[in-house]
Nucleic acid binder design. Structure first.
Length: 839
RNA sequence: GCCGAUGUGGUGGAAUUGGUAGACACGCUGUCUUGAGGGGGCAGUGGCGCAAGCCGUGCCGGUUCGACUCCGGCCAUCGGCACCA
């Protein structure tokens, strides 16, 4: 063993050994417990940044730990290779995206290897290869047959910079998630997947992920799916237009409806606008107004009457229909019944346009004291409500006993009773029924981009859209193209778009749109189980490996990727390709890596160059630092001094090992011959093994595991015992420390294990086992409290009975001073921990 | 507005089931080693106090022998959703 720690050489040697021995190649073995550990695969942008390093280190630590427990561990890696940056880079260089992507993959693969991750590279996948994407094309055509795919012209989110359609999930604050450009609304024919058919199942499935997935992620998905139970109500037309359908979750307030409002895009609005110039202008204005969603929410409530009326379904009273900018076409029926007394938005609108306000619930009127300040009393004088009602309204204080009022036969009911009664009455009249609504929309998967998987459809003038037949798959994306500007070159490439209709044989046009790249990342985890299968999407190996036992990735994928993958898993399940409902049994969302309090980014100039760190300190130091600082799911601050500290620790440990080994061979521990001090130290060792095991396995708090190891080593440095048994215990300790550090600093451990004289590599070693007998104490220390405050400590036999403990506590000199002869009222003993004397 | 987190020394954080608050590190101070730089060793490091001791986990209250931990009510920060009827 060298005297000084030389990470460059140590790491090269270890990596060469792993490579030469295929150490991480996993094969199915039904006799062993499997463990599929997966970190979210990266987009091959060109370089690994510190966020990547942290993500993959966490995954690698878990994978290596599980392997040491004896499990059959599979940890694959691949590339989410389609996507816009490749196109943008290609436009800049007047070259094709494919070679740029393959170069980046090669470079990043080298960086991964340099970091020593235990990936099974024989399973490597790049989603831009037809061997991969052909199977999603195949699945798409199967889904088309089942009616789970459809094409429709829809108002879409159009990103004017990236020249493509975005899914709702990809629009953030009215801007494109990647380009940041303000999104426009356009009408374009597009392909959709019926994710809404699975809305209930995706929602219910979240329950079984409790404890296994972070609360935050489950809550975000729940909100995104946005299930609501309500009633669909028909308001009959009076003025020879058409009936108005609305959706409401508050049917109990139906008797308080004083007008109806429709979205600007609603057919009734369009019809009325034909004969109303002012209304037509208002509608145009609404459609082109500031489209940022955040602005919409705070925008002034504007509206105009359509001049038409509908009939209240229970009272037949005529209600005016307004066009209002606060009604969304995309939710429910694009129309609402307005109950100004019990809905803030309706109230604001009614107040502004002097529409009637009618209270029908006691104690829950929206007019809180806060709103009352904003709307002085005079504002209501034109409204339908009298002095008494108004006073009752304001006087009501307790919101827990709500009942329906001013509502005929429904008065006196609770809101829930009223919902049921009103829904029943409406159903009897054929004017309404209970209905469940979702916020979730069907997934639009068409992208007008080149660097993606071609959508395997042919558009025929007579037959309509026809799927490409199975024997003609895959539809291969031509890789040798030159991109001159935004927009897809496929649409101007006859060799690609010219096709024959599989139905009638006529000339037809191939679909030139490509899939949203979330399509590829929705099922890659399954393909990793059998990446070489060229006859089917998946085979029986998927049944062995799935589900993924531990998935690790960024919280930014809480909704998009993780929801799509859960959806795809069910689609594949229903095709008989996989078993089980959920793809990822356990999820860990790792926190960001910050520098100077902000997320690292090139624009802020606060990035840390991964390559530079690896060259200066080595992979083990970087890995150790990112695992030491905080629990994996918390954000960490990159500190140069912290990295120095991690490096110093490894150097010190190396020296400790060297010094110990220089003393020569240490024999085995002879338990009977241990002195009291040796036993005490050895107990600390086994307590540490127990804690580290729990931290790595159950708690996943590697930071506290590493702290415990450091504590043990600090104690080991103080434990200077040159006797034979002292050296034996020291040897046992250092071996256990090396084993426990193996998942985090595998190269260091590899070299240290050889130096400790082992023939077999540490990668195949077993995780250290706690020697229960070492944990036994003859004497323990108890804390003595007086009235809950720490006053002293007593040493006492571990098996001492209650009386002995009480006597010892009462007679302790430090404690006695605080008793001051006052009578002890009560003595509480927490076994093994403390004694509390209450005076 | 709704949902989900989080709040502890100068800093990152620890305290797992209600039982010794501040583990482990970073930084800082003193000191030793070295020709110097660097590196390393040792000691100290929540606040106030000479000390005994007192105070101390965002704020206010409660439960308890005992509260960072549980309950009620606030405040602040971060993240997500947001005119969802």
């Amino acid at each position: 063993m060298d005297e000084t720690y030389d990470p460059a050489r140590i790491e090269r040697d270890a990596q060469q050994y792993w490579e030469a021995n295929n150490s991480f190649h996993a094969t199915e073995d039904p006799d062993r417990e499997k463990f599929y550990c997966l970190s979210m695969f990266p987009y091959p942008s060109g370089n690994l940044h510190m966020g990547h390093v942290r993500n993959y280190t966490i995954g690698d630590v878990i994978a290596r730990y599980q392997r040491m427990l004896g499990k059959n561990v599979m940890q694959p890696m691949g590339w989410d290779a389609f996507g816009l940056p490749a196109e943008n880079a290609a436009i800049e260089r007047h070259a094709a995206p494919a070679p740029w992507t393959y170069q980046n993959i090669a470079h990043m693969r080298d960086q991964f290897k340099r970091l020593g991750f235990a990936f099974d590279w024989t399973r490597e996948i790049a989603t831009c290869r037809s061997e991969y994407y052909r199977w999603e094309q195949w699945l798409f055509t199967r889904l088309h047959k089942k009616g789970l795919v459809y094409r429709k012209t829809a108002v879409v989110n159009w990103d004017p910079v990236d020249q493509t359609v975005l899914a709702n999930e990809q629009v953030i604050d009215g801007k494109g998630w990647r380009s940041g450009a303000v999104v426009e609304h356009r009408e374009i024919p597009q392909w959709f997947l019926r994710i809404t058919d699975y809305a209930d199942e995706l929602l219910d499935g979240l329950k079984q992920l409790e404890l296994a997935w972070p609360d935050a992620v489950r809550a975000m998905q729940r909100n995104w799916i946005g299930r609501s139970e309500g009633v669909e109500i028909v308001f009959r037309d009076i003025d020879a237009g058409s009936d108005l359908k609305v959706y409401t979750t508050r049917a109990d307030t139906l008797m308080g409806a004083t007008y109806a409002a429709v979205a600007a895009e609603h057919p009734i609005a369009a019809e009325a606008a034909k004969t109303n110039q002012a209304l037509a202008e208002f509608i145009t204005q609404c459609k082109h107004g500031g489209m940022a969603e955040a602005e919409l929410a705070t925008m002034e409530k504007k509206g105009m009457p359509t001049g038409t009326h509908v009939r209240h379904p229970l009272t037949d009273e005529p209600l005016p229909v307004w066009v209002a900018n606060y009604v969304l076409m995309g939710y429910g029926e694009g129309a609402v019944m307005a109950v100004p007394a019990h809905d803030e938005r309706d109230f604001e609108f009614a107040h502004h346009h002097r529409l009637p306000i009618r209270q029908v619930l006691e104690n829950t009127a929206v007019l809180t004291s806060e709103l009352r300040k904003q709307h002085p009393r005079s504002a209501f004088e034109t409204c339908y409500f009298d002095e008494t009602e108004w006073q009752d309204w304001y006087a009501s204080k307790s919101p827990d006993e709500v009942q329906v009022v001013n509502s005929g036969r429904y008065s006196g009911m609770t809101p829930q009773q009223a919902v049921d009664a009103i829904a029943g009455d409406l159903a009897a009249k054929g004017l309404g029924s209970k209905r469940v609504h979702y916020r979730l929309r069907d997934w639009g998967v068409s992208r007008q981009r080149y660097w993606g998987c071609p959508i395997p459809m042919i558009l025929c003038e007579t037959c309509g859209p026809v799927p490409v037949p199975e024997q003609d798959l895959p539809v291969i994306l031509p890789e040798e193209v030159v991109l001159e500007g935004p927009g897809s070159p496929l649409a101007t490439l006859p060799a690609f778009y010219q096709a024959t209709c599989p139905g009638c044989g006529a000339d037809a046009r191939r679909e030139t749109d490509t899939f949203d790249t979330f399509f590829e990342s929705s099922w890659y985890y399954a393909r990793f189980t059998c990446p070489d299968q060229d006859q089917a999407m998946l085979d029986e190996r998927a049944h062995y490996w799935l589900p993924v036992d531990q998935y690790i990735g960024g919280i930014e994928h809480a909704i998009l990727h993780l929801l799509y993958a859960r959806f795809f898993h069910r689609l594949m399940r229903d095709e008989g390709l996989v078993q089980g409902d959920e793809p990822f049994a356990r999820l860990l969302t790792q926190g960001m890596v910050l520098k100077d309090g902000a997320k690292m980014s090139k624009s802020k100039g606060n990035t840390v160059d991964t390559q530079d760190m690896l060259d200066r300190y080595g992979a083990d130091t970087v890995r150790l630092f990112v695992m030491s600082d905080a629990p994996p799911d918390q954000t960490i601050e990159w500190m140069d001094t912290g990295v120095e500290g991690a490096h110093r620790f490894l150097k010190r440990l190396w020296r400790q090992l060297f010094t110990h080994l220089a003393k020569g061979d240490a024999g085995a521990v002879d338990h009977a011959a241990l002195t009291r001090d040796q036993k005490t130290f050895r107990r600390l060792l086994h307590e540490t093994i127990a804690k580290v095991t729990d931290d790595f396995g159950r708690r996943m708090t590697m930071n506290t595991a590493l702290a415990a190891i450091r504590e043990l080593l600090n104690a080991a440095q103080r434990f200077e015992d040159e006797r034979r048994q002292g050296q034996a215990v020291m040897r046992e300790t250092l071996e256990a420390v090396v084993l426990m550090l193996t998942p985090v600093v595998p190269h260091f451990a590899h070299a240290a294990w050889i130096a400790l004289g082992h023939e077999h590599p540490v990668i195949d070693a077993q995780w250290p086992v706690v020697d229960e007998s070492a944990l036994v104490r003859e004497e323990i220390e108890l804390v003595v409290q007086v009235n809950g405050k720490l006053r002293g400590r007593i040493a006492i036999a571990a098996d001492a009975d209650r009386e002995a403990i009480e006597a010892a506590a009462l007679s302790d000199a430090a404690v006695e001073r605080f008793l001051e002869q006052k009578p002890v009222r009560k003595i509480i003993i927490v076994p093994g921990k403390l004694v509390n004397l209450v005076v």
